[in-house]
Structure formats: structure tokens, C-alpha cells
């Protein structure tokens, strides 16, 4: 069974809403407390990036629950300015907004799979997965 749902990120408050939905989903799937916190934190980082850099976009949640494995896939999709140099934004401490620059490299460590597709001028799509252990 694969359940898919999404939330729009348009205002700051949507960041909190998205991470709460993610945590509830993660809990329902059987993730432990630490992984629930990891997933909620990753969503918070991705949603804030959409809000800050692309103005609006969406977070998509997919439940992966088949015979082999169980997990959650989180997609962060926007039609914002895109990212020029992906290796640069993946460096710890790199920020164009005076932030900590911990978001993207952090999400990569918080989740099990991480992939960025971005085209300058078109937008960004980040796909991450966390597996239930």
C-alpha cells in the first residue's frame, strides 16, 4: 500500500504544519522516537528552504509499505530560482541567507537516501527516503 499526500508551503506557519504531518505519518508507520524527530527535522529544513528561497512549493509524503520494506519518502518540490552549484549548497555552513547552512547537508545525514534535481530558473526537487529499521 502506497499512500501519497502533500502540503503546500506558502507561509511560514506551513513549515510547522508539514513537519507535524510528517511526524504523525512516521509514527503510524512504526518509526521510533529518534527517527520521528529526524524525519520531522528534515521536513522542517526542506519546507523552510522552499519558503525562504522559492516562496512557495510543496512537500509530498509517500508511505512505502510493501513486502520487502517499509519507509517514508519525502519530496520537496518548488518552481523557484533553482540551485546553480549543488556541491556548494551541500557544504556544511554554506548559506546565502545568513543561516547556519546546516539544512541540506543535515537532511542528507538525517535521512537514508537523498537526491537533488535542480535547474536554474526552473526549480528544485529534492527526494529523500527513510527506512523503518
Amino acid at each position: 500500500m502506497n499512500l501519497r499526500s502533500s502540503v503546500k508551503i506558502q507561509q511560514e506557519w506551513d513549515i510547522v504544519g508539514a513537519r507535524q504531518i510528517g511526524r504523525d505519518r512516521a509514527k503510524a508507520l512504526g518509526f521510533g522516537t529518534v527517527d520521528q524527530a529526524r524525519i520531522a527535522t528534515a521536513i522542517s529544513e526542506l519546507a523552510r528552504n522552499i519558503y525562504l528561497y522559492a516562496k512557495n512549493g510543496k512537500i509530498v509524503f509517500e508511505t512505502i509499505d510493501d513486502l520487502q520494506h517499509k519507509g517514508i519518502r519525502i519530496l520537496a518540490i518548488d518552481c523557484g530560482p533553482g540551485i546553480d552549484d549543488i556541491s556548494q549548497v551541500m557544504e556544511d555552513g554554506y548559506s546565502t541567507s545568513g543561516g547556519l547552512g546546516a539544512g541540506l547537508p543535515g537532511v542528507k545525514r538525517l535521512m537514508d537516501q537523498f537526491e537533488i534535481n535542480s535547474e536554474p530558473g526552473k526549480g528544485t526537487e529534492i527526494r529523500t527516503v527513510k527506512w523503518v529499521r
Binding site: 529518534v34 524527530a37 529526524r38 527535522t41 539544512g103 543535515g106 545525514r109 538525517l110
Partner: peptide, 14 residues
């Protein structure tokens, strides 16, 4: 600070 929060902070590199 909750244990889970301490762990996610380390993952974030903070």
C-alpha cells in the same frame, strides 16, 4: 534537551 533532539542536532552538524 530530549535525547532525540540532541541526536538530530548532531546530524545537522550543530
Amino acid at each position: 534537551i530530549q535525547p532525540a533532539v540532541a541526536m538530530t542536532l548532531i546530524d545537522l552538524g550543530i
